[in-house]
Design a protein around this nucleic acid. Sequence first.
DNA 1: TTGTGTTTTACGACCTC
DNA 2: GAGGTCGTAAAACACAA
Length: 217
Amino acid sequence: MASCRPPRAPTTTTGTLSFSPRPLKPLLVQIPLCHYNVDSETPDEAESGGEDEYEGCSLPCTKKRRLAANQVQFLEKSFEVENKLEPERKAQLAKQLGLQPRQVAIWFQNRRARCKTKQLEKDYDSLKAKFDELRADYDSIAREGDSLRQQLASLKEKLLEREREKEVTVSAGTGTEKSDIVDSDSPRITGDFWPETVNSASHIFRARKLLRWVLVG
DNA sequence: TTGTGTTTTACGACCTC
DNA sequence: GAGGTCGTAAAACACAA
């Protein structure tokens, strides 16, 4: 099939012109890991044709080779058992799979990273769901607060009207003081009874009490 | 076929124990 | 110092146009 192409651009494996944001240490000319596989008959090679793919390649080959499905499956099972890799286990896996121990280590590193990303996505979804739920509750309470505020304003108006009427009647008759007229059980309406910015449960409770008092008498 | 987005492999830099 | 994470390059792959 394809012969080994030269690298598209200076890469981290070949050198100092890397686009890495951090300055790189002087690099050695490294033999990429794909060459480690060439001499060993891994399942990967058995499926893809092995060395044939690299015929005619005289440059250090930077071509990456995906692990075979059965290799990945084996590594996945091993990862499920334990996602960290002790040296003995690394060596054993490498031997069983016909890979370099470093390839196994890198596979585990990348697998942990993928696992972490997945977990973060899950956590995000769950937090977002909770947030949406709380916001819906908040909106509902805010709406109820608005409605109660409106009711309160109109009741306040009615109450004051009623008091004015009584005051007129009483002062025309017995001359009783205004303060004697108000029921001692009546909720006290003060200036900050229902501040515009507050939607607390206690205010809702007080509004309901006032409502009851006005309706029941 | 080709352009484009995603996944996988591999590495360097840095951190922690 | 060994082995971890993090960020990234680049190959491999998937897929629509």
